[in-house]
């Protein structure tokens, strides 16, 4: 045990290959927030996968996180579907954010089961650019179904849930918790890379 080498000293000269290329390829689905793109392994949203947004309460900014992406997709002609949103999307604000309202569709669903079914159908169809849902009582199995549907339809899926479920594991490829005060995003899980230790201050 004579030679104790600090691991930092080994890594510093970059003589050990760490299995990840130094420069990550530019993401195909940037979030539109430079700070967030820089820390996410794919340089943006994980493609064809479920991303989970965890919010402590209504009105803390899940739309501000999503709007740049939705604006980019809708202007590229992709369809955006909101399945059973908790409130009415207010057209002037969405348009101000740059979302092409002609590409926005809302699906009303009576029960949470219907909402999950509709979300899965939309994801699986492959005819939508992004599908947003608010699975309230969704269990692990339901989320896994959504994840598989998103993969088979190659569609971006966003599930907004309560921060209280952050302690449970989730099959989502990316989990971001949104904090109100201080205004920041915390990446809880990201597939294909290390979870960034520092929270990202909110922009925009």
């Amino acid at each position: 045990m004579g030679a104790v080498v600090a691991i930092d000293a080994l890594l510093q000269p970059q003589r050990v290959w760490r299995g990840r290329p130094a420069a990550a390829p530019a993401g195909a689905q940037p979030t539109g927030h430079a700070g967030l793109d820089a820390v996410l392994p794919s340089g943006g949203w994980p493609e064809a996968a479920l991303s989970e947004l965890l919010i402590p309460a209504d009105g803390v900014g899940e739309l501000q996180l999503l709007w740049p992406t939705l604006a980019r997709l809708s202007q590229a002609g992709e369809r955006i579907v909101l399945v059973a949103p908790p409130y009415l999307p207010f057209a002037p604000a969405w348009r101000q954010a740059g979302v092409d309202l002609g590409r926005l569709q809302v699906v009303r669903a009576g029960t949470s089961r219907d909402a999950l079914w509709a979300t899965e159908q939309c994801l699986r169809s492959g005819s939508c650019g992004a599908v947003l849902c608010w699975p309230l009582g969704a269990d692990d199995r339901a989320l896994r179904r959504l994840q598989v549907a998103a993969a088979s339809g190659r569609t971006l899926a966003f599930a907004t849930r309560s921060l209280a479920v952050a302690i449970h594991p989730s099959p989502a490829a990316l989990r971001i918790a949104i904090d109100a005060a201080p205004a920041q995003w915390r990446v809880l899980k990201c597939r294909g890379g290390a979870v960034p230790a520092q929270p990202i201050p909110r922009t925009g």
């Binding site: 509709a118 939309c122 005819s127």
Partner: peptide, 27 residues
Amino acid sequence: RPQQAMPWESLRERLRARLGEDAVHGV
């Protein structure tokens, strides 16, 4: 999109058939 993709028109009809006539709307 993949080959088995369902066009939006069919998807919309499917959603309306189960969720109701006015379940899908724009903004």
